[in-house]
């Protein structure tokens, strides 16, 4: 068995060093496209690291959101940056070729302010880590003791959707704010549908039902095993991104109130349920034990819809105003 332990140790060491190396390369790369690809690879290795730490829930979320959807968003943003600056791929670099013109006083001030704020928050986080008790059993015992009353048997879901469900409520609002932020910059211009090419059409037609099935499975299994709203939502969101990339566009009719309803339903359900529980149980989001399982499933289902809509719409908004796949090369 010593050999197995050594192998695991070696694997972890390679994984950890690989992560550091990828992070450094991604930050240090002068080519933004390369940096994004390195970031995606970093996300996938990070998911592996979470698996090694026995945190499959986080691993699923990291692979789907951290590597997949964030990568897609970054690539779309880069493609848009290229059309905006009207340069080709190698032209957009993190380090401009020309020496920057002397910075005006305002920009220097804001840069100084940025450094100050970043240093302050880093110092705050450092202090928080420093002041942690050196030995702690954590809260896993408490969670295990109350798991029976949570309505689910997966402790992660119990914490996220019951014991600390206001965290998830706030996360839903953060997602909503992200869409509002992007829309306030540019709105959502109408997009012409481009019929996809044969292979992409087959791919998207075949994979969409599979993805929906996987999302439903992840949502359902979240009660007892790794999975849940965020994982299911990101898989559904990725389906949306695949369809958008293939050239499909949602009907204009759907882009009006049905879209807004989908975007807000998760946060809305949380707030409604929070108010109800506040009235009836005198505590925010304290579900009655008998109904807890059903309420969690309801909340998670609605949150899945919202998360998926948010992620897909973020991608559509970021990539809009730019010909997705053809614009880049045809210019060259």
């Amino acid at each position: 068995m010593d050999g197995i332990i050594f192998l695991q140790w070696a694997f972890d060491a390679v994984l950890g060093l690989g992560l550091l190396w990828l992070a450094w390369r991604a930050l240090n790369s002068s080519d933004l496209f390369k940096a994004i690809v390195l970031f995606i690879a970093f996300g996938l290795l990070m998911a592996l690291a979470w698996v090694r730490l026995n945190a499959s829930d986080v691993a699923l979320a990291e692979a789907a959101i951290g590597a997949g959807l964030t990568g897609a968003l970054l690539l779309a943003a880069l493609a848009r940056l290229e059309t905006m600056t009207d340069q080709n791929v190698s032209g957009v670099s993190a380090h401009p070729a020309h020496p920057p013109s002397p910075t005006p006083a305002g920009s220097r001030f804001s840069r100084g302010l940025l450094i100050l704020l970043l240093s302050a928050s880093t110092a705050g986080m450092g202090y928080a880590v420093w002041s942690l008790p050196s030995y702690s059993t954590g809260l896993s015992m408490d969670v295990a003791a109350h798991l029976d009353s949570s309505g689910v048997s997966n402790p992660v879901t119990a914490v996220l959707l019951n014991f600390r469900s206001y965290d998830t409520l706030l996360e839903m609002i953060v997602l909503l704010l992200a869409v509002l932020g992007v829309w306030s910059l540019d709105g959502l211009p109408p997009q012409p549908e481009k019929p996809p090419a044969t292979v992409l059409e087959t791919l998207s037609r075949f994979l969409t039902p599979v993805f929906i099935l996987v999302a439903a499975y992840l949502l359902w299994v979240g009660a007892d095993a790794p999975g849940g709203a965020f994982q299911a939502g990101s898989v559904l969101g990725a389906t949306g991104v695949l369809l958008l990339l293939s050239g499909w566009r949602p009907r204009a009719r759907l882009m009006q109130w049905p879209l807004r309803l989908a975007l807000t339903t998760g946060a809305g359900a949380f707030i409604l349920l929070g108010l109800l529980t506040l009235l009836l149980e005198k505590q925010l989001l304290a579900y009655p034990v008998a109904q807890a399982g059903r309420m969690i499933l309801l909340l998670e289902s609605l949150a899945t819809v919202s998360i998926a809509a948010t992620l897909a719409i973020l991608f559509l908004s970021v990539s809009s105003g730019h010909k997705m796949k053809t614009g880049k090369e045809e210019k060259e």
């Binding site: 292979v199 791919l203 994979l207 090369e329």
Partner: peptide, 17 residues
Amino acid sequence: FAGACVAHLVARRALRK
């Protein structure tokens, strides 16, 4: 399935380029 499709897409893009 995904590998075959993506390889086709990459190769086609490279040819067109």
